[in-house]
Each structure stands twice: as structure tokens, then as C-alpha cells.
Design a protein around this nucleic acid. Sequence first.
RNA 1: GGCGGUGUAGCUCAGUUGGUUAGAGCAGUGGAAUCAUAAUCCACGUGUCCGGGGUUCGAGUCCCUGCACCGCUACCA
Length: 480
Amino acid sequence: MSNTAFVSTAIPYVNAKPHVGFAFELVQADAVARYLRLIGRDCFFLTGTDENSLKNVRAAAEEGLTTRELCDRNTEFFKALLPGLNISNTEFIRTSSELHTRGAQELWSRTKPEDIYKKHYSGLYCVGCEDFYSEKEAEDGKCPEHKTPLEHVEEENYFFRLSSYEEKLLELIESDRMRIVPASKRNETLSFIRGGLLDFSISRSRKRAGDWGIPVPGDADQVMYVWYDALANYLTALELTDNSERLKKYWLECDKRIHCIGKGINRFHTVYWPAILMSVELPAPTEVFIHGYLTMNGQKISKSLGNVIDPLVQVEHFGVEAVRYFLLRAISPFEDGDYSESRFHDVFNADLANNLGNLARRIETIGEKAGHVPKPAATPEAPEGYHEAMEDYRFHDAMAALWAVATNLNQRIEKVKPWALQKEGKKDELAVFLDEMIAGLGIIGHWLTPFMPGTAERLQSMFKEGKAIKRGDPLFPRLK
RNA sequence: GGCGGUGUAGCUCAGUUGGUUAGAGCAGUGGAAUCAUAAUCCACGUGUCCGGGGUUCGAGUCCCUGCACCGCUACCA
């Protein structure tokens, strides 16, 4: 077992501002990375932006910017999300960067020659959209967007010979050498592969791509298809080109290589990507964790509905810690979940203010009055079921285990009645009781780190060894 | 159409290989307590476990069937 780990998010398109959906993924991946560090692994945590897309070319044109200008500007919105959500990424990769470009070309060049071939691609093309439509999408051969007749266009593209990887992929997944979580998504992938794999296009004409993208090595008329290049980010960020120490440490010799992705891009990560890696003789990821989508007050989040919420506005409103708590605890990691302010409000008051926040306050007050000084403590053991939950990406269950500790402490307070001990002058008994309480809060303060690093830190400093307890501000003031 | 999944208390969901009075959290009602952010603690659920058949001594849990919703079904980060 190596003591390193690699964790990544998917890289979003930058043609629009980030919304809560991506914040959800960032926070989950961050919890994974922070957890791995907490148990002693040196974790490389990667996120970034996908910029070589025709969508970006178009979005830029609409705004009268160059594609580069649009990408530079919008990438900042995504970067701003990271400190805002307290994300502990170690690297941020932009696919329009020089490092990525070189790396993606290197990946292409290393691909087995027999796995890449040139083939005619034909389809229905809309000049207005500069895009192809399938016959299903195009009613009566007309563009669904422009309602104009589509042209039949033929083009030569490079294809990847995915068809020759069926058996190897099945073996990889069935053996769980690449573990897909949850099982329902694993089944989806397996049945997709069993249905037979077709080769897929990995390039397009430079012209059709709007002269934007990564040139195919040795063919100036072709750029890489955005999917091929986007997937490469995981390795280009590790300095694939230079065969670096990073690559060795966090991929080649690392036994935890985790991708966190949304359900819509399962196939790309569990079929195409491992096949590409096999062709270049690099190891596949060891785990792919697939999360669901968020809805907003029960509705799909979309621009047209006008219910796109900016995660940073939420953070401003409720604080990072509360936003992270809600996303990780109140929403299933695997199923679609609903983000509603009324539920947020309820969960905030019940769990954060009333339970944990009030508990910490009670102990602080009692401790301060008693003039208590916490003793040094060893790293506390995690509650029952916590590690198992984390291994399976059941963040909500791991947190439930932590909150059960808080509930127990509240119950103990009622039973022992420390205020009575104080009145009766039973100092020793009170001190023993306070040590018990502080030990309990120490468990929470330590193991809460992956989810709510700020709160974990505050809890730890509240009851720091050798420092007399002094009441501070409440952790989570109740919401009205 | 094909393959797969879901449907359990007002809400969000747990329910191992079928086994006693079906559970948790939140919300609600009543009480206790006063260290605390009117927070906490205790007590309280007559739920057609989607409908209908069936297997079984016994089914939320297995089989068949009907209904509703969802996912995948090839180039959408």
C-alpha cells in the first residue's frame, strides 16, 4: 500500500458561471481528499477547467471576445469558488494551458499505433450551429435550433479502436480493480460494455472546431476531440510529458487513484478513459465515484427556469461550513438531491445550532465557570462505522456517526447535571465530567475535518490542552 | 422497444441471507429541566410497507402481474 493518493473532480466547461451542482462535486471531492490526508496519505487533489470546447468559441463570439479572453475571464469564476468553499486542491489545470497541450499530445503520441486510425465521418451538419445532429435530433432533416435544412457533410477524423478493449474493460471492472461506486452505476457501465463497443472519434477538423483546440500531432488540419483532451487533464496535471516525479508518486506508484464525477459523464470515465490508458500502458483509475444531480426546490436547475443559484451567494448567506454541511449530510451522495432553502434552514437550526453548536456552548460555559483546563489528549478513535462509510463515499453516514456522539453528550449532560455539581462544590467530579465531554467533542473535532474543516479547527481550539476554557462566539447562531 | 432501478410515517430516508408488537432524523403534541443559541432531555406514530395475485408455518423482504416515476441504450464535463 502506498501512502499517497490522487483525487480529482471533473473539469467543467467555462461557458457559464459555476452553479451549486459543481460546488457539490468540489465539496465531495474535497471531503475525500481531506479524509485521506487525515488518515495519513499524501494526497494530490486536482481540479480545473475544460476550455477546448466549441461552446466556448461560440460563447466568446456572442460576447465579442476572443475565445482566449472568454476562457481567461470565466476561469476566474471557477477559481474563486475554491477559497470560497474552502477546497484543499493542490493543483488547478486549465486545458488551454501549455502544460496540458503538451501532455495531451504526448498521450496521443504514446497511444498504440494500431489503436488510432483515420475514417470518414458523415453526418447532418448545421452551418448556423457549426455542429452535427443525429437523425433522431433533426426532425425532417432540419436543424432543431434554426429550422433550416441540414447539410450532409463528410469529414475525415481519427478514431480510437475502443472495440478491441471490451474484454479487458470487463475484467477491469468485474474484478473491481477499477471500483465503480455506487453499484447501480457499475451495472450501467457493465451492461453498456456487454452491449458491444464501437470505436469513437477522437478528433475533428480544425475548421469545424473554430480553430480552437489541441492540434493532433503530425496533422495540422485536425484538433483533438474535446473529450479526448479533457480526460487527459488528469495526467497532464501530473506532468505526464516530463515523466515526472509527480506522475510516479501520484499515479504510477500510487494505489488510490480516484475520480469524482457526475452521473452524466460516467461512460467517458469508466469506458473510454481506462481504454485510452490501457493503450498507452498506464494504470487505470482505481476508483470512480459517481454522484447524482441537484435540483432546486424540486425543479431541475436551468438558466431558462431562472433558478440557477450561485454557490458563493449561499456561502455569503449561511457560511461555508453550513453550505458544506448541507451538501454532504442532507443530500445523498449517489441519488439526485434537492437543494431548498427551507430545508437548509431546518437542517441548519436542528443539527448545527441546536445540537452541535449549543452543545459546544454548554460545555464552554460550564468549563469556564469551573475554571477548567483541558488535559493533553491523543488522537481520538473514529466512531463506529465512520471509516467504513468513508471508504464507500457515504459521507452522510459518516457524519451521522459524528452527530450521534453529539447527541450522546447532550444526554449525558442532562443525566449528570454539571450545574448541580458546581453548586454543591463537587470540583473533582465536575472536572472528570468535563474531561469526558471534552474527549467527546475531541472525537467530533478531529473527524469532522474532511467535511467542515473550519468547524473542526474551532472545536479543537476551544478546548485546547493547557489553556483555560474561555467562552467565545457561538459556532452557529440560530437562523430566524 | 431492450436492459436496469425506484415506489416504506407529514418530509428526507434505513430496513442484512424472509421470522416476534416495521425503524431513524426532522416536523408535530405533552411533560421535565435551567449549564446553553427559548437550545436540551424524556414520552407519544390506527403507516392499506404503490395495487392485485401467489409461494410459505410466516413476506416490506422471494415469484408473477398491473400502475407510477427514474436511469442507461455511443461520441452531451
